[in-house]
Design a binder for these strands. Structure first.
Lengths: 113, 113
DNA sequence: TTGACATATTCCGATATCGGCATATGATTG
DNA sequence: CAATCATATGCCGATATCGGAATATGTCAA
C-alpha cells in the first residue's frame, strides 16, 4: 500500500499552499477560473486542478455563467478542522505556561546550589 | 518541479490521519514510542517515522528516559491552523444561511409561476 | 563486554502528487 | 456551421509519500 488519497479529505486539501490561497481569495466572493489563476500567478490548468480538488472535498461550489465557471466558497468543510485544532487550545495556552514555570524553578534551584 | 515538502509545514504534518491520532493520544501526556505504536496498531518503525515528522514541524518534544524516548505534545504549532480556519468562521455561519434563503426564494418563485 | 531492550534509520516498491504542455470539451458569437 | 473564448482533462516526468522489512544506533543490566 501507498498513500492516503488527497481528495475526499479536507485536511489534505488544505495542506497545499496554493489551495489555501484560493480559499482566501474566494472569501471575498465568487470568481472565474482565469481570474484566480492570474491573481495567484499560476497557469489555467493548474488552477483548474486545484479547484477540482477543493470542489471534490466540498469546499467549493461551481456555477456556470456563460463561458465562465464561477467558483464560490463553501467554508463549512473547514469547521471540522477548526474544531479539531480547537481541541488543543487548552494545551497551547496552559500546559506550556506550566512548563515555563517548571523551567524557572529549575533555574532557581540551580542558582541556589 | 514536484511537490511541497511535508516536513517544515504543520498543515502537511496534520494531513495524515495517523499523525493526527498521535497528537490526540499525546494530549493526555507524554508517552514512549512503543506504547503509541501499540495503541494505534502500527509498527514501531512506522510510529517512529510519524513522530519524526511531527517533531520536525515542532509539534512534538522528545525526552530521554532510560531506554525509552518520551514524546510530549507542543500544541502551539496548531494555533496558526486554528486561526487560519477561524478566518472563515463568519462564512460557514452567515453566508450559507443567506444562500439557503436565496434558494427558498427561488422555490417560492417557481411555485408561483 | 555481552546481551537484551527501545528506538531510529535505511532501503525498497507501489502509488500519489504537482507542474507543464498539449489537447479536449463546452459555450457563445457571428 | 465555424471561430473563439473559458475551462477541463490527459499525459508526462520528477519527486515525495507511506508502509514494510531489515538493520543500525543507543541504553541499560548482568
Amino acid at each position: 500500500m501507498a498513500r492516503a488519497a488527497t481528495t475526499s479529505d479536507v485536511f489534505n486539501a488544505i495542506a497545499e499552499r496554493q489551495r489555501r490561497q484560493i480559499l482566501v481569495l474566494l472569501r471575498a466572493g465568487e470568481r472565474p477560473v482565469a481570474e484566480l489563476a492570474h491573481e495567484l500567478g499560476m497557469t489555467q490548468p493548474g488552477a483548474s486542478k486545484h479547484l477540482r480538488v477543493l470542489r471534490e472535498v466540498g469546499l467549493l461550489k461551481e456555477r456556470k455563467a456563460g463561458k465562465q465557471r464561477l467558483y464560490r466558497l463553501d467554508a463549512r468543510g473547514l469547521r471540522p478542522v477548526h474544531e479539531w485544532t480547537g481541541g488543543f487550545e487548552q494545551l497551547w495556552n496552559e500546559r506550556f505556561d506550566r512548563l515555563d514555570a517548571y523551567v524557572q524553578d529549575l533555574k532557581h534551584a540551580r542558582r541556589e546550589e
